[in-house]
Amino acid sequence: MIRKRSITLHGHRTSFSVEDPFLHELKLMAAERGMSFAALIASIDEDRPVGSNLSSALRLFVLQELKKSRAQGSPQAL
């Protein structure tokens, strides 16, 4: 199920909508990096192309990270 979430990035409120499995993976990835969930989202937000959608950027980040993990021999599943 897609859920809309709100977060403060760079001092302003914004929202994104992702499915629960993507949210779960994002939280795990933040914990693995020793950073807060908000810090990871802010990092992804800063790196996304201008005009692109934050929700899509979050999904693509998860996909990219899981592909990297698989390529390194440690498969993970959503």
Results as ranks from 00 to 15, higher is better:
residue 71 A to M: 15
residue 20 D to N: 09
residue 10 H to T: 08
residue 66 L to R: 11
residue 60 L to C: 09
residue 39 A to Q: 07
residue 31 A to D: 13
residue 51 G to E: 10
residue 69 S to H: 05
residue 71 A to S: 13
residue 45 D to W: 02
residue 15 S to N: 13
residue 24 H to L: 14
residue 71 A to K: 14
residue 78 L to C: 04
residue 27 K to D: 15
residue 43 S to G: 12
residue 55 S to W: 02
residue 37 F to I: 05
residue 47 D to V: 04
residue 24 H to A: 11
residue 57 A to L: 02
residue 49 P to I: 09
residue 75 P to G: 01
residue 30 A to H: 01
residue 58 L to G: 00
residue 69 S to E: 14
residue 9 L to Q: 06
residue 36 S to D: 08
residue 47 D to R: 14
residue 45 D to C: 00
residue 43 S to A: 13
residue 78 L to E: 07
residue 69 S to Q: 15
residue 30 A to P: 04
residue 20 D to I: 07
residue 65 E to S: 03
residue 1 M to I: 10
residue 42 A to V: 02
residue 7 I to Y: 02
residue 65 E to V: 11
residue 42 A to T: 12
residue 7 I to A: 03
residue 13 R to I: 12
residue 63 L to R: 10
residue 27 K to C: 06
residue 70 R to S: 04
residue 54 L to G: 03
residue 18 V to S: 00
residue 30 A to F: 02
residue 3 R to T: 14
residue 70 R to P: 02
residue 2 I to R: 14
residue 62 V to N: 01
residue 13 R to N: 11
residue 37 F to A: 00
residue 53 N to Y: 04
residue 51 G to L: 05
residue 58 L to D: 05
residue 9 L to P: 02
residue 20 D to L: 11
residue 59 R to G: 10
residue 56 S to V: 15
residue 19 E to A: 09
residue 37 F to S: 01
residue 31 A to H: 09
residue 27 K to R: 15
residue 9 L to M: 06
residue 75 P to D: 00
residue 53 N to W: 07
residue 32 E to A: 06
residue 55 S to K: 02
residue 75 P to F: 03
residue 71 A to W: 11
residue 66 L to M: 14
residue 48 R to V: 09
residue 48 R to P: 01
residue 70 R to C: 05
residue 69 S to M: 14
residue 40 L to F: 00
residue 78 L to A: 02
residue 60 L to D: 10
residue 65 E to Q: 13
residue 53 N to T: 12
residue 41 I to N: 00
residue 58 L to I: 06
residue 30 A to D: 01
residue 67 K to H: 11
residue 39 A to F: 01
residue 50 V to S: 12
residue 19 E to S: 07
residue 13 R to Q: 14
residue 22 F to M: 12
residue 75 P to Q: 01
residue 16 F to M: 08
residue 38 A to L: 06
residue 70 R to H: 09
residue 6 S to F: 10
residue 78 L to I: 09
residue 10 H to F: 12
residue 30 A to Y: 00
residue 35 M to H: 03
residue 65 E to A: 06
residue 4 K to T: 15
residue 5 R to A: 04
residue 71 A to L: 15
residue 65 E to F: 01
residue 29 M to Y: 06
residue 67 K to E: 15
residue 23 L to G: 05
residue 28 L to W: 07
residue 15 S to L: 04
residue 68 K to W: 07
residue 17 S to T: 15
residue 38 A to C: 05
residue 74 S to F: 09
residue 21 P to H: 05
residue 42 A to L: 04
residue 58 L to Y: 00
residue 19 E to F: 00
residue 73 G to I: 07
residue 76 Q to T: 15
residue 33 R to T: 01
residue 17 S to P: 12
residue 55 S to V: 05
residue 58 L to E: 07
residue 40 L to R: 00
residue 59 R to I: 13
residue 55 S to Y: 03
residue 14 T to C: 13
residue 47 D to G: 08
residue 2 I to D: 14
residue 56 S to E: 15
residue 3 R to L: 11
residue 70 R to Y: 09
residue 57 A to K: 03
residue 38 A to W: 02
residue 47 D to H: 08
residue 34 G to Y: 02
residue 64 Q to L: 09
residue 25 E to K: 10
residue 46 E to V: 08
residue 33 R to A: 04
residue 42 A to H: 01
residue 29 M to C: 02
residue 12 H to C: 12
residue 51 G to W: 05
residue 16 F to E: 13
residue 57 A to F: 00
residue 42 A to C: 06
residue 60 L to P: 00
residue 42 A to Q: 09
